[in-house]
């Protein structure tokens, strides 16, 4: 079994309005040094497969097909045997 830990973020070229709004709130809290906030998604998938290469292939497909919309988002993931 493998656990895939997936991080999905908006591409740098896309304005993250949610991040921008949160940045305003962080400034209001007094953290003037906070310069940028980007908000993304954290997804964990447990895969009942024996082979790491296969787990990698399946995770990549799941990301491409469903979890991320690659027009606006980038994804990265790590795999850990469990």
């Amino acid at each position: 079994m493998f656990k895939a830990t997936i991080k999905i973020v908006l591409r740098p070229s896309i304005l993250d309005v949610q991040g921008k709004a949160v940045l305003h709130a962080v400034h209001d809290l007094g953290y003037a040094g906070a310069d940028q906030i980007r908000i993304g998604k954290h997804v964990e998938v447990i895969l009942n497969v024996a082979d790491k290469a296969e787990a990698h292939r399946q995770t990549d497909e799941i990301c491409k097909k469903l979890l991320a919309n690659t027009v606006m988002e980038d994804y990265t993931f790590t795999l850990e045997q469990i």
Binding site: L15, V17, Q18, N69, V71, M72
Partner: peptide, 16 residues
């Protein structure tokens, strides 16, 4: 858009 029948994506409204 998600199904790829039309090009592009939808982002949250800029006003949030």
């Amino acid at each position: 858009l998600e199904a790829g029948l039309l090009p592009g994506v939808m982002l949250p409204n800029d006003s949030l």
